[in-house]
Design a protein around this nucleic acid. Structure first.
Length: 655
DNA sequence: ATAGGCTCTGTTTTT
DNA sequence: CAGAGCCTAT
């Protein structure tokens, strides 16, 4: 162990040092953008371990798994010894970890499955059918999922939430509640939890079982929470409970960067922290190492319009640079051309593409830019909207594993059967029912039953799949998975891909990748819950590890916590950013959150910032809409920006 | 009755 | 570019 007190003083500024080496007790670290927040947490962990705290008694909650891994890796470097016992990850992960052990305490089996978005939508669809209200004038499954999740994450009763949300519609709240009840029933029946359930039951476990709570309270001497401004009421109560015994809770965050209100996050959690912990030490990290003063001036002005926030001033340390550019190209194509021209310029000046990002409010805002970049042969990577494990072919293949792993996983069973001709949702459901809501591939008579229930057209296909099923013991699945999948591809799924998709070979490659990935797990259960909880942010670091030189295209949400030398923000027009949808629900709070989102976008930039607001946009049905520039741009004094023109629109025929 | 192909429409953000 | 809705073949 090499580090000493001096070491920390050398490595950290006084603010960071105060946070990292604070004595026991609650602490709130308000870390403005670019002030070394991650560094401070890493050093705090290192400091605790150096002081002799067993890493197994530290709990570190982060927003993504990637963030947790990064921090743990850096802390390990500092300390020089393994700190692998430390519990680190997202709230969902930690809740899952506890529920795997204690699920029966909340009425579930330990081998529950985790529903991803698609799964839960189809279960909601099923609930609608079961309630006999799958009419088109009723709420769609997505809307219902939004309401259910909204209530769960705010720790509210659904009835109370929908009273507000459904006023002025013809939807009967009683029907919504009915579907919700059925949905919960179906989940329980299938032994499945959705994402929200992990949090809800995680908290339920603590509320209902004092002995279990006490065990964890004793265990965790220190609790650290990153991105505290984005915790929702369930998460903050959960944290309060788990930290209640030792009261060594360190909350780190920035209320300016609270951008998950739509998911139930409540920035008031961070605002009221000092009231809930009157003895809390409050540390402010205000020295910014990331951005030039010119960028910070713009950032400060754009957040100034928001009410109710902690007062923070950002002190720049970098030398003056150039004012951010503001550009109003005639249309989206010209905007794309402008971005490409600028990228060419940066490239010629010797900058890496890796150090350039284009940020936007919603995925579809980047469509035309993707086309233009492809035409211009500029490589780009996308933090796409669809996650690896949510792609159809990956889910298909996983459903085979799920069926074998868990005999009551009806969703996986249905998915697998639907691959066969003449089997759809309905047929799969009927068969499932007739099998008695479970399917055990190791029972000969169940297999025989299934064979007889399949429609004639499906039988020849099933005939080649069935022999693969019971080749290994259920406990050995993880070892056999590789071989099993290979056979499955060979006898069935490869042909299926060729017949149903345009790019079967790419999808085959994905599945090859999946087979390698499985090899890293010790149990099927671990593999299945990890993959359900893996976000695409977590993945990018690992699988794009080749670190190709490419520009990054990302939503502002997914850019949180990241930084680049050169940042473009596109489609800064009213209605797109701020998004009109974001404003619709609750005018004032909606606008405040959109403004924080803009603040996050601006503060991602180290040296150069390019803001773009096209003057018009063409809609899908060839109409041209005039766009006014974002209200957030109006709030920035003109002398802080450098206005540039972006050439003429591409020539176009009109008829 | 249900599967599956075909057409049309209209887009937030994600663990 | 996907998801809902409509239509026809099984």
């Amino acid at each position: 162990m090499t580090a000493t007190g001096n070491f920390f003083e050398r490595e950290l500024n006084p603010e960071q040092l105060a946070a990292a080496t604070a004595p026991d007790g609650p602490m709130l670290a308000l870390a403005a953008a670019g002030t070394g927040k991650t560094r401070t947490i890493v050093y705090r962990v290192a400091y605790l371990v150096e002081r002799g705290i067993d890493p197994g008694r530290i709990l570190l909650l982060t927003f993504t798994n990637k963030a947790a891994h990064e921090m743990l890796a850096r802390a390990t470097d500092l300390v020089g010894t393994g700190i692998g016992d430390l519990w680190g990850g997202t709230f969902h992960h930690m809740a899952n970890r506890m529920l795997r052990r204690y699920a029966p305490a909340v009425g579930y089996r330990n081998d529950y499955t985790i529903l991803d978005r698609d799964d839960s939508l189809s279960l909601i669809r099923k609930a609608l059918r079961a309630c006999g209200i799958d009419r088109r004038d009723f709420l769609k499954p997505e809307a219902l999922a939004g309401l259910f999740g909204g209530a769960a994450n705010r720790d509210m009763r659904l009835r109370d939430l929908i009273e507000d949300r459904l006023t002025g519609t013809l939807i009967d709240p009683a029907d919504v509640v009915k579907v919700h009840r059925k949905y919960k029933e179906l989940k329980l029946e299938a032994g499945a939890m959705d994402f929200d359930d992990l949090l809800v039951f995680g908290l339920e476990l603590f509320r209902q079982k004092p002995d279990i709570l006490q065990r964890y309270q004793e265990r965790f001497l220190h609790v650290l929470v990153d991105e505290y401004q984005d915790t929702n009421p369930i998460q903050s109560e959960w944290v309060d409970l788990v930290a209640a015994r030792h009261r060594n809770l360190m909350a780190v965050g920035d209320d300016f960067q609270s951008i998950y209100g739509w998911r139930g996050a409540d920035y008031r959690n961070i605002l009221t922290f000092p009231e809930r912990y009157p003895d809390a030490r409050i540390v402010k990290l205000e020295t910014n190492y990331r951005s030039t003063p010119d960028i910070l001036k713009v950032a400060n002005r754009c957040i100034a319009g928001n009410p109710r926030q902690f007062q923070k001033t950002i002190r720049p340390t970098r030398e003056p640079g150039r004012k951010p550019d503001l550009c109003r190209p005639p249309d989206g194509d010209t905007q794309a051309q402008y971005v490409i021209d600028k990228i060419d310029g940066l490239r010629r000046a010797g900058h890496c593409l890796k150090e350039i990002a284009v940020l936007y409010r919603a995925h579809y805002h980047a469509l035309e830019l993707q086309l233009a970049l492809t035409r211009a042969s500029i490589p780009f990577v996308l933090t796409s909207g669809i996650r690896f494990f949510e792609q159809a072919h990956i889910k298909d293949v996983c459903s085979l594993l799920r069926v074998l792993h868990n005999p009551i996983d009806g969703m996986a069973f249905a998915r697998l059967l639907c691959l066969l001709p003449r089997v759809g949702e309905r047929t799969a459901e009927t068969i499932w029912k007739k099998l008695g809501y479970s399917f055990d591939a190791w029972q000969a008579e169940q297999k025989e039953r299934l064979r007889s229930l399949l429609p004639a057209a499906a039988r020849p296909f099933w005939k080649v799949i069935e022999p693969l099923l019971d080749r290994c013991h259920r406990d050995q699945l993880i070892v056999a998975a590789n071989e099993l999948l290979q056979q499955f591809l060979k006898v069935f799924y490869h042909d299926y891909l060729v017949q149903n998709f345009e790019n079967p070979e790419r999808r085959m490659e994905d599945i090859e990748g999946l087979r390698e990935f499985i090899a890293r797990f010790d149990s099927m259960e671990e593999f299945l819950s990890e993959t359900a909880l893996l976000s695409n942010l977590d993945r990018t670091a690992e699988s794009d590890g080749a670190e190709q030189d490419a520009i990054r295209l990302s939503t502002v949400h997914q850019a949180k916590g990241l930084e680049w030398d050169h940042v473009f923000v596109i489609w800064l027009t009213d209605g797109m950013f701020p998004s009109s949808r974001g404003l619709s629900e609750n005018e004032e709070e909606g606008e405040a959150e959109e403004r924080r989102l803009f603040y996050v976008a601006v503060t991602r930039a180290r040296s150069r910032l390019f803001l773009c607001a096209p003057q018009c946009r063409r809609t899908a049905n060839r109409q041209t809409l005039w766009c006014t520039q974002s209200r957030f741009l109006d709030e920035i004094p003109a002398d802080l920006l450098h206005k540039v023109s972006a050439g003429r629109p591409a020539f176009r025929w009109h008829r």
